[in-house]
């Protein structure tokens, strides 16, 4: 099959040749709440070791999809699979998530990280060296002893990423991790994500920023009305969206803010 593809002149999208194994998958996934079907017969496959980007309009169901995959919500129909098997406790422990609105405990920055690590069963001796290394990388080391909730929104967002990564996950879910961040904070978060990727962490990230999707993402899943309407390499989907919804969404963005979505 690959041979056949290589023979075709100028394939519009290079097929990712040695497909990495599927880490998380869902088929026929449904989720109902408030008498409405919010996730509707959704199929998705997250491949191991890659950075998958989820895009779509506000209210499309992206955050719900992340919660379902992370096991925080129980699907009304369908099943989330982890390496082809039903998700169990061990699988859950191999994941971490940064929420759209980070939740910090009413403690110091340091105590927040210590709490997360102690929950994950790290001994006190190993903990602090790891914490300070992580804080340094996020440029938060000066804030270690401040109450986490006095940090600015952007600092809390970075702390949330640090906390998730400190848990040493195999799979990291990020729900708009750089929304409402200034460019340098956003850069700091992207650096953290890149560092995690270099360590082999699989990343699933929601973003509204096509430029960020191009910088960080490899696979793109476009969500519309509770369904994944298009999946493929980021470049291909953004440049040549095949689905009506993705096309309209990209056009809408360009129309609303011309020039802002020029890829860097």
């Amino acid at each position: 099959m690959c041979e056949a593809l290589r023979d075709t002149p100028m394939p519009p999208t290079p097929v990712a040749a040695p497909a990495s194994p599927v880490l998380v998958s869902a088929a026929g996934l449904c989720f109902d709440a408030g008498g409405k079907r919010l996730i509707d017969d959704l199929d998705i496959r997250i491949r191991e070791g890659r950075c998958s980007v989820i895009m779509g309009a506000n209210g499309a169901g992206k955050s719900l999809l992340l919660r379902l995959m992370h096991g925080l919500l129980t699907p009304s129909a369908g099943e989330i699979r982890w390496r082809g098997r039903p998700m169990d406790r061990a699988a859950r422990r191999a994941q971490a998530m940064v929420f759209q609105r980070p939740v910090m405990l009413r403690r110091s920055v340091l105590a927040n990280l210590r709490f997360a690590l102690s929950v994950r069963g790290l001994r006190a001796g190993d903990r602090d060296s790891r914490i300070f290394e992580a804080l340094r990388r996020a440029r938060l080391e000066d804030m270690a002893h401040r109450p986490a909730r006095v940090l600015s929104g952007g600092e809390q967002q970075r702390l949330a990423v640090v906390r998730a990564l400190a848990c040493d996950p195999e799979l990291l879910f990020l729900d708009e991790p750089t929304a409402s961040l200034d460019p340098s904070s956003a850069q700091a978060v992207e650096d953290l994500i890149a560092h995690a990727r270099a360590r082999g962490v699989t990343v699933v990230m929601i973003t509204h920023d096509p430029a960020q999707a191009r910088r960080l993402g490899e696979d793109l899943h476009f969500v519309h009305s509770g369904q994944v309407v298009e999946s493929g390499p980021v470049q291909a989907v953004l440049d040549h969206p095949r689905s009506e919804a993705a096309q309209a969404w990209l056009d809408g963005r360009l129309f609303v803010a011309p020039g802002q979505s020029t890829p860097t």
């Binding site: 925080l72 859950r92 971490a96 998530m97 929420f99």
Partner: peptide, 9 residues
Amino acid sequence: YAEQFASLG
């Protein structure tokens, strides 16, 4: 806290 707790396990 519930979701954060559930996420951390």
